[in-house]
Amino acid sequence: MAPEEICKLLKTEFGEAIEDAVVEGGHPYVQVQPGRWREIAGFLCNDARLWFNLLRSITALDLLADNKLACIYDVMCIPLDQGAELVTETCEFAVRVVVDRDHAELPSVADIWPAADWHEREAYDMMGIHFADHPDLRRILCPDDWVGFPLRKDYEFPLEYHDIPATTEYELPNPRH
């Protein structure tokens, strides 16, 4: 199914919950309301016309200029009733959900796609997006006592961690000068 058709289908099913649709460019996506994201995720995963059963990636994005954070969910369809035949046509799509930086909370989709579990933990760890009803939301790459969310654009690099001094590259003398 082409991106235009997917957008059209989602718009007829969910109406105003689809805030924006970008079908041009290298990464077609729809932007949906955070409040109805779970409902739409269930539709994407289980509807026989779409069947986006593979959650490929969750990319957290900092939109500092708009004072927003975003999550991009990249999904793909793997037909299971293929038998021995190799699938040569595929369908992929993306959904973007935008939330306020001050109140960055999204519903978890870990029960719809179990793959979302670690991706959501990573988005929480790196960007500070809270996922409601996540089974085990804690930091995944950084230590549990880390302060701040490193991938936010206004993140300040710590100058020490447990008495281990740290420098940022801006403080190092530049050997070229």
């Binding site: 059963n53 593979l54 959650l55 490929r56 793997i78 299971l80 293929q82 021995a84 035949e85 190799l86 699938v87 796609w113 179990p114 793959a115």
Partner: peptide
Amino acid sequence: AIAFGLTGPMIRGSGVRWD
């Protein structure tokens, strides 16, 4: 395998012809 987002030899090892 698909639900947990496995790919590569992991998904092919579960019998899904996907490359």
